[in-house]
Design a binder for these strands. Structure first.
Lengths: 215, 215
DNA sequence: TGTCGATGTATCGTTTCGATATATCGGGGA
DNA sequence: TCCCCGATATATCGAAACGATACATCGACA
């Protein structure tokens, strides 16, 4: 679950844990607020599996200023310590501010693992997080797999909507409970129509892109 | 988290694990599909804390048929075994079909624990599950606490919406990623207006109910 | 000078999950 | 008649995720 997310983000760019977390939280917004207590263990698992590895931080992964020869005593000291660490074979670099960083990069094996995890159809329909995550990386999926993902998700939501309506019928008279259930079904309906738009756009895209190979 | 849910349901009625799970899933619908792997340990914790205890199953907790003197060999055998178990001091009863059941009831201590967990304000705003759960049991809350819950939740959602919009602005050009983020903000907006309706209804309710004690 | 907030890595104990084992019954076919 | 399937039911295991917290380092500001 988290592995897929990490690999997907590292596919774009080498990153250290802290930044990785920020990207993930930003990307997945609402759902799935990943914590350090899950991130670092997951990175450890991936590292043990040779799916990611620590790279020497060539700094400026994003748009960082090119470290203008410090000018501060503290920074000099940190730089010294960093050199000492490097001499000991540790691939860490002090960021501008903050503790020394360990920058991770994805490996070839990690690329393959990413493909496998992303393609796993079973995991992606019922669980909201799993689906959202896979949609976020949907551009790495072939057209048919992407469409399949959307349609399987839609089917799951329709079933969920059904269950919701049944619950609503069976529910008691408590105002708050009913309101919760009602709102739940509304959200599901909204989700389904959103998926419908996505599916339509997807079909349109593939239709226009294969006008040289007709039926 | 799960403790609150369990206590809330048991407050209505004595139930065994399996049925408890069904009620919870029905009640909380979409979110929070509670599994046995968390339910039974949670029940164990509650039992150790004297918040719930196994009660002799007087059967027919809901609308079960009054066990029409079986008529089947298997059932007779099961009944015999049940009697044997009862003789050994185990409070279990065979259901109509299925393995012997252990029916739980809430204790006085459990009632107090329920109040405490429900009233815990900090836990209820940012986490979706925590809020939904507390809303489901909102009828057990005093008016002001209920209103406070709704308003804190609203504030949290407004903040979330802001973060979502910022993410959207900072996001790349990937269609699926953007769509995900957009849909997320739409859902949050929908959530907020739902909360607004709830809050309005709540104010209206308290206003009409204290027309004898004006400003 | 001190301390505060942001950046950053890491681990601990607890909770939750998903899978699986076990057990019992009723009902539907071979 | 027998046997197997599906529903009902409890229970546990290992893995995963979480929340809290500790630790470390820097820049900025008073």
């Amino acid at each position: 679950m988290l592995e897929l997310a990490i690999l997907g983000v590292l596919k774009e760019q080498d990153l250290h844990g802290y930044e990785l977390k920020r990207r993930l939280t930003e990307m997945l917004g609402t759902f799935s607020a990943v914590s350090f207590g899950s991130l670092y263990p997951a990175l450890g698992r991936l590292e043990r599996a040779d799916a990611v590895k620590a790279v020497e931080a060539n700094d400026a992964p994003a748009a960082a200023p090119p470290s203008p020869a410090t000018g501060s005593l503290g920074a000099e000291l940190a730089a010294f310590r960093a050199r000492a660490r490097a001499a000991r074979g540790e691939v860490r670099s002090p960021g501008r501010g903050g503790r020394s960083r360990k920058v991770y990069g994805i490996t070839v094996k990690g690329d393959r693992l990413f493909e496998d995890l992303l393609a796993d159809a079973a995991a992606s329909t019922e669980d909201d997080r799993a689906f959202n995550l896979r949609l976020a990386f949907a551009r790495h999926l072939p057209d048919d797999a992407r469409l399949g993902l959307l349609e399987r998700r839609r089917a799951a939501l329709v079933e969920r909507l059904d269950r919701g309506r049944r619950s609503l019928k069976a529910a008691g008279t408590d105002t708050y409970g009913r309101s919760l259930l009602e709102h739940g079904t509304e959200v599901t309906e909204h989700d389904i129509s959103w998926l419908d738009r996505l599916i339509a756009a997807e079909r349109e895209r593939t239709r226009t892109s294969r006008e040289d190979t007709p039926t």
